[in-house]
């Protein structure tokens, strides 16, 4: 019997909405969309958390401006997330000194269970979860463990990406997971391509990209 599954329910019980940011393809902008969604909500005065669930390759701390080596985690009925740009943030990078963390199958489920079972989010209006690409261990485990979840799907306009996105939409429908938004990134139909975005990662909250993400999320969140 794995007690963490029960612990997770308790630790997530103060969270009103959980938004999982997904994409079948890599490099389409999930992490930036996750971070900007969280920052946008925080600016509206919501209490918001961000979990980096890309456990073997966490990067959300970079646009959030958190240096993992400078973080000292506080313990209080669990482990308290770190505050950055108005967002409560937890990442596996806090436990690895930013080294590579090679994990397989069950270990991926296990580290996600541990993080969810020990992080004390307190009361949140929303928890945003950044995930790795595809429909493999991390994503399936999260969809299994997280209650009240809604998906934010990110894709790009290429024919391959849109085919994979359609498959992902079908999968979500079959699993009964509501699709909050399907964001087409680097596209005239969704979020445009901003050639200088990489130079502005450190102050992402000030970018047109971030403003655009917040605007899309505001239009769909019905809250």
């Amino acid at each position: 019997m794995d007690p963490r599954v029960h612990g997770i329910r308790r630790m997530l019980s103060g969270i009103r909405r959980i938004w999982v940011v997904l994409s079948p393809k890599g490099g389409v902008g999930k992490t930036l969309v996750s971070v900007c969604t969280a920052i946008g909500l925080a600016r509206e005065g919501r209490t918001v958390g961000l979990l980096d669930a890309d456990v073997t390759n966490p990067t959300a701390h970079i646009p959030l401006g958190v240096d993992p080596r400078g973080v000292e985690l506080r313990e209080e009925e669990g482990v308290v997330p770190v505050r950055a740009k108005g967002v409560l943030f937890m990442s596996p990078v806090f436990f690895t000194e930013d080294r590579a963390l090679p994990l397989r199958g069950w270990e991926i489920s296990s580290i996600l269970r541990e993080l969810l079972a020990i992080t004390n989010w307190g009361r949140l209006d929303c928890l945003v979860v950044d995930t790795p690409p595809g429909l493999a261990d991390e994503t399936l485990e999260l969809l299994l463990l997280l209650p009240r979840k809604e998906a934010i799907l990110v894709s790009t306009p290429s024919p391959m990406a849109s085919t994979s996105a359609r498959r992902m939409e079908e999968f979500l429908r079959d699993e009964g997971i509501p699709l909050l938004a399907h964001i087409e990134n680097m596209s005239p139909r969704g979020i445009p391509y901003y050639p200088n975005l990489d130079a502005e990662i450190g102050h992402i909250e000030g970018t047109e990209f971030c403003r655009k993400v917040s605007e899309i999320i505001r239009s769909v969140q019905n809250d």
Binding site: M1, D2, P3, R4, V5, H6, G7, I8, R9, R10, M11, E75, E76, E77, G78, V79, A117, I118, N120
Partner: peptide
Amino acid sequence: MHEWALANAIVDALL
């Protein structure tokens, strides 16, 4: 303490 969270998970599982 994060042991509180570990113990609580055990209690929830037992009950």
